[in-house]
Design a binder for these strands. Structure first.
Lengths: 228, 228
DNA sequence: ACCCACTAAAGTGTTGGCAATCTTCAATCG
DNA sequence: CGATTGAAGATTGCCAACACTTTAGTGGGT
């Protein structure tokens, strides 16, 4: 019997049902900024608020720790981590390198259907950029990159990418959001697609990695701008 | 007061004390092959054997799940994962790319002390290779690569590398162990060091990545040999 | 006013138990 | 004889309570 729950009852394929829901909820709270950086996560309070016991909350907190979203100190509990700029830059480096690898693989192994799908995304971004729709561009951009990693057919690489971009999105202060420079960014996307289409793996890799680094630079610039 | 425990009482900096110990013990059991691939982890039995309750055992199992060492199924518990050859190859690809990145960074940023330390390791491996001491070579080799990642100064990249090589070491069947080809492998190490010393980041990257791929090939060959 | 010991409150770490679910295996039916 | 069903046994998911640690607050001494 399904006892009443304050949580969205997602069956989820993951281990414990409740813990997975709590984990999702905690993640959402961090994303919404309800839980600011450095803030303590009170197990009992959160458990009561969600209508569950402390067990699932603990499990969720430990899961977030493994994801690098919180730090847990012995006998003191879990604290929302703050993403240092250094670490963000390091993650940009990591994902840039991986993006290069992925593009190189796609250059030699992409299917026609996959190519069309990617190019459709580039087209969509083009339209969004010209219409000035930042959110549409942003979402499509995220999907575009995820698709590239998915198509490359290396599950560990894809998992690492997803984990780290999520970390960036969740822990970065909203105001640090990368200013898209949509047209230029999408121009780089076209470059990547052309390189992949040409079948030149080394070229595709260089172009894609440069795109990742350019994102890193745009991030740095956004921070510098914000500081002034 | 420290009640008697069947576990090695490692304080560990990690969250819960007991859970961390259990996690280490579980990992060791997998490494020793006591827990074979596909085998079920009985929470109660393991808890009793270690002299703790089920809570810490659950927590440790979930931690291993996040590390990719076990799979946990709802209402059925945790099972030791088997590393598929596909996945092992994918991890080799991943670490090869990261090793290339790391070598490239070291080419422009390595300190004199770090360089000496790395070269000392290469020398040690040389001696071990000529003496035919496979275990010494193996251990030094692991330390050598870890040092490179440590010196590169990108914590996320280092963490990804450590996590995935551990996965390889723990889940790979002992018989799949990569045949070292010590002399050739260490020759590649020298190549990497020379490239780093030259300051040519692109060259260092290429050489290092090729070394990673060569390891992948040696792994494949070892499997093929074993099948025959 | 400042510092230190002491105490109480809050919060985490751990435990054992209950309900729900899955597995096993024998009896039953086609 | 093979497939099915259903009850017993085993095991997990979840919870409430206990034990220990940390922290905040209080009072006495200097």
């Amino acid at each position: 019997m399904a006892q009443r729950r304050l949580l969205a009852t997602k069956p989820e394929s993951d281990g414990a049902a409740l813990a997975a829901s709590v984990e999702a909820e905690l993640e959402a709270m961090i994303a919404r900024g309800e839980l600011g950086p450095g803030q303590h996560i009170n197990e009992l309070a959160l458990a009561r608020r969600l209508g569950v016991s402390r067990g699932p909350v603990r499990e969720a907190a430990r899961a977030l720790e493994r994801m690098g979203l919180v730090t847990v100190i012995l006998n003191r509990g879990a604290f929302v981590r703050e993403l240092q700029i250094d670490e963000a830059l390091a993650i940009y480096d990591l994902t840039a390198v991986l993006l290069g690898y992925v593009a190189g693989r796609l250059a030699t192994s992409i299917s026609a259907a996959q190519l069309l799908e990617l190019q459709a995304h580039v087209g969509e971004m083009e339209a969004a950029a010209q219409a000035g729709q930042q959110d549409v561009f942003f979402d499509t951009n995220v999907r575009f990159h995820k698709l590239m990693f998915s198509y490359a057919g290396n599950a560990p690489v894809e998992a690492v990418y997803l984990a780290h971009t999520r970390k960036l999105l969740l822990l970065r202060r909203r105001s640090f959001d990368e200013s898209p420079h949509m047209l230029q960014s999408n121009g780089e996307h076209r470059e990547i697609m052309d390189a992949i289409l040409s079948g030149d793996a080394e070229l595709a890799r260089q172009v894609a990695e440069r795109h990742g680094r350019a994102g890193r630079t745009r991030f740095l610039r956004a921070i510098a701008y914000r500081e002034a």
